[in-house]
Design a protein around this nucleic acid. Structure first.
Lengths: 130, 130, 130, 130
DNA sequence: GTGGTCTAGACCACA
DNA sequence: GTGGTCTAGACCACG
């Protein structure tokens, strides 16, 4: 799995790393039990400070997405079900994105089709994650 | 229109102000030509420094969402149509949100219904914005 | 002569008025001795505060471009020759404009032709101004 | 590269900083990839508040002239080509400057020679910027 | 009255 | 160390 960074953008690098791993897991590019590279290895590969990768792994661990084993490095965890996923914060973020689209002249139909397509992309891989 | 801030969160206050005005415009709570409160007034109302509000207005001005008239303060602008609204960046943000939902055990059907509901919320007000 | 204002722009309104009269004089749309509308009349025509027009006229008077006669209103003056016109400030402004063009990929030839064309536009009317 | 400020003038300091960096880039005093001083350093050198420098850098970032890398500070960006550089706004500014020169008695030949000289100054450094 | 600009000083996130 | 954000308070230009 390849991680692409935008060094100059506004999103912190550790956050970008975390996001791409999350995306990889959700789309099935990373399977349960699969091992991630070590902090140093990944840091070397993508050219960032090991502390940055470490922070990303820390985030993922806190979210229960990976488990860190001192001997084996990090592995993708069996994922924790959280029925409060679609909470107020989630709604706010989605509504902001939709609002910006509407403001730029996107019709209700367009946005609906477009987002449903994106949902299909993420759920393409049918096997469960839990 | 009421603006609610989350002082403790990590979203900058000026960004929150900008986001809520965007949301207000997209949902029709703010109409084209409508005047926004003055910098000082809004700053006083929500209890922040005028420069913070000023920065938010500056963002909105740069995006073409409001126009700042030296005589009357800020007004909602006729909105600039941008057919590149559903770009790569938009897709990434949406897919990340969907990925997080899937990881937390939300089914494809659930997320689809939920998001379609959110779209309807934003597009409730039928009159066009342009 | 028509004056067009951009109320929302960064340039002060009184400055815009002054600039357009300067342009009108230089291109010969306004002749020496020609009368300008009164402050109130112009203010009414273009929909701004009389104080704003008054400030513009004050600028033009200070520059020797118009003379103000209490009875007859303002008239275009025989223009004062100033051999320090192409001063350091002038050069800085021009070089900044050229720099911005070069930065955006405009070639030396293009900019030369383009600006020479603009010079011809302004000097079209051959009769002297002095 | 030296930055000189005119504190008494009416051009905002942050704008002056931005302008001089633009000029430096266009004339080749600043090369692509070159690092700018840090916000604090430049602020200290020229004796202004860091936020003022920060605003100037923000402008340059928004224009795509520099990129801000959290690790290394600001660097000159590969310059964005914009074929609409010689637009209406550009023409207006140039024509205003020419008009003022003509009004002060400068002849068409004088202004032509003078400006062509200024163009040569900016384009002195032959290597491309893109 | 309005927004624009600047300062001095502070705290935080990032790497 | 870097830039990003915010505050409190001030002055100015504009209309």
């Amino acid at each position: 799995m390849i991680i692409k960074l935008d060094i100059t953008g506004d999103v912190p690098i550790y956050q970008q790393i975390r996001n791409q791993i999350v995306y990889g897991v959700a789309t099935g590019q990373l399977s349960i039990g699969e091992r991630l590279p070590t902090v140093r290895q990944l840091a070397g590969d993508i050219g960032v400070n090991p502390m940055t990768v470490s922070k990303a792994y820390g985030l993922l661990k806190d979210e229960g997405i990976i488990v860190i084993d001192r001997r084996q490095g990090a592995k993708i965890n069996r994922l924790p079900v959280d029925d409060k996923a679609l909470n107020e914060e989630f709604d706010q973020k989605v509504k902001l994105l939709i609002s910006e689209a509407r403001m730029k002249g996107i019709s209700q139909d367009e946005i609906r089709k477009h987002i449903n397509q994106l949902i299909d992309n993420v759920y393409e891989k049918k096997e469960g994650l839990h």
